[in-house]
Amino acid sequence: MIVGIETGGTKVVCAAGRAEAPDRPVLTRRFPTTDPDGTIGRIRDFIAEAGADEPVEAIGVASFGPVDADPSSPRFGWITTTPKPGWADVDLLARVNPEGLPAAFVSDVLGAAVGELRYGAGRGASSLAYATIGTGVGVGIVVDGRPIGGDGWPEVGHLLVRRHPADDFAGSCPFHGDCLEGLTAGPAVLQRWGVDASSFPPEVRDERLSILASYVAQMAYSVALTVGAERVVLGGGVMLAPGLLEATRAALPDLARGYGPASLSSRDPADVLVAPGVEDSPGVVGAMALAADLLG
């Protein structure tokens, strides 16, 4: 039996299943993310439940962060400088896995990138980025099948972007103001316009979607240029706004202007920028897949 754990800022998803089928868990539990003691206690209860009939052989954790996911670091498995109250400098991996079982530890978006590459919208690609545009902005990257990550990086959510000419919003990021997260995350949308992106009035919807799309497309273009991602999966609550994915696809060719890897210069943007393909919690599916990898 293997266990995958996806800890998010608002909820935790735990799943257990067979190493040969990480995308088909046989047991799943969801519960709110509260304080570390209460949340980790419920995760430990799930692991005990999953191993009641046969032992758990490996664990995968995909966590909100920033996290230290560098196996050579003395703080490997820690949540580090998160603004979530009570969670900064928590040794998450050691606390959910005191038995020292074989364990993988990555960021939540990197777990989702692995899940989407192997079992979702990234199937057939070798390199992929998964971006969540929601309460925050995070991007996980897999290059040539290898998850990329370390001590708090990559941190594409704080990429500096060109301002849209119709956007005078100062930005909501407490560190950078108008970085990608400060201009596109859910709190930024609410501060700028007073409603979420799915509730824009019809008379202003197109302009507002165009503003958001320009920033998301810049992120996708930057990732493709930097790591050669063949596909960028766009998830998160903001991307559920009707028309935003299509607007982002429409903005990509004007950015690329025919320059860049083949994924940008010769392919339909609808094949490059895609919605998630894993129906439920790609992060926990990726965490289970990484746990299965540890067993060969």
Results as ranks from 00 to 15, higher is better:
Arg29Asp: 15
Arg29His: 14
Arg30Phe: 11
Phe31Gly: 04
Phe31Arg: 03
Thr34His: 11
Thr34Glu: 14
Asp35Asn: 13
Asp35Arg: 13
Asp35Lys: 12
Pro36Ser: 10
Asp37Cys: 12
Asp37Phe: 11
Gly38Gln: 11
Gly38Glu: 12
Thr39Ile: 05
Thr39Ala: 06
Ile40Pro: 04
Ile40Ser: 07
Ile40Trp: 08
Gly41Met: 08
Gly41Cys: 10
Gly41Ala: 11
Ile43Cys: 06
Asp45Gln: 15
Asp45Arg: 15
Phe46Lys: 03
Ile47His: 05
Ile47Gln: 05
Ile47Lys: 07
Ala48Arg: 15
Glu49Ile: 08
Ala50Gly: 07
Ala50Cys: 10
Ala50Tyr: 04
Gly51Pro: 03
Gly51Glu: 03
Ala52Tyr: 11
Asp53Val: 11
Asp53Glu: 15
Glu54Arg: 12
Glu54Tyr: 09
Glu54Met: 09
Val56Tyr: 05
Glu57Gly: 13
Glu57Leu: 15
Glu57Thr: 13
Ala58Cys: 00
Ala58Asp: 02
Ile59Ser: 01
Gly60Gln: 00
Gly60Phe: 01
Val61His: 01
Ala62Arg: 04
Ser63Gly: 09
Ser63Gln: 09
Ser63Tyr: 03
Phe64Cys: 00
Gly65Pro: 01
Gly65Tyr: 06
Pro66Phe: 07
Pro66Tyr: 07
Val67Pro: 02
Val67Met: 08
Asp68Val: 02
Asp68Phe: 04
